[in-house]
Write a protein that binds this DNA or RNA. Sequence first.
DNA 1: CCGGATCCGGGGCGATACTG
DNA 2: CAGTATCGCCCCGGATCCGG
Lengths: 135, 135
Amino acid sequence: MISLDMANDTDLEQLSEQALSNMARLRPVLDKIADKWTIMILTVLCPKPSRFNEIKRRLHGITHKALADALKRLERNGLVTRTVLPTAPIGVEYAITPLGHSLRQPFEALCAWALDHGDAMTEASAAHDHARKAG
Amino acid sequence: MISLDMANDTDLEQLSEQALSNMARLRPVLDKIADKWTIMILTVLCPKPSRFNEIKRRLHGITHKALADALKRLERNGLVTRTVLPTAPIGVEYAITPLGHSLRQPFEALCAWALDHGDAMTEASAAHDHARKAG
DNA sequence: CCGGATCCGGGGCGATACTG
DNA sequence: CAGTATCGCCCCGGATCCGG
């Protein structure tokens, strides 16, 4: 633990100032990547580049438009590349960039947590609803 | 075309089945936690419990309603607790639960990435826009 | 057939005002 | 100070159409 407990309010102010400035820098980035599809798309793209409908198939549940928009955003942010294949019919291949690849570890940590604690969250929700129903 | 791809697909089908089933389990969890405010709220609550307006002040930019909704969701999912303080005027303290605390590491990884690569993303966006403007 | 753009309706989010 | 209710807008999501 940190000597945080020992700090008085003034010190806490000082400390939180930095936390705040960090968060000010954090917010715009999180706005871009903390979207539920971003994680799953990059996860799909990680092992190998894929085409549009291939991604769509793997993410059964995602909408045509949602996927298109997400891919556009990811491309704009430099996380994936978009390559038109000279095939007939036309094919478009999406690949993950090094920058996008660097996101893999954080995302994996998050996914691992999700798999580990997803049930706990479900139980918590159920318990909460039950209590609310009882109350 | 491409019976070759189909052969590949069959093998990949096997492999991706697991990835898919993982992702099927992932999706509902990510739906709950992969929200941009969740991360920042838990980050704020991590060092010490805080009251409503205290959180709001630290997240300058968040709306009253957004914060209220997010806190309700977090409480429902067992990530934070809500305690009414017997003070006058009434105060409510939000604290992080062990479950919520277990999210800290994944989130820290994500935040670290954001701080490291945020600029790269910004540059990428700018470059993309510039190219688009030129085209 | 594949990938993308457009249009429109509904839900979510933000701002304000009010209660305890 | 904390929370809810209401309204209005925007944006997301679904359907349809277009180009290759």
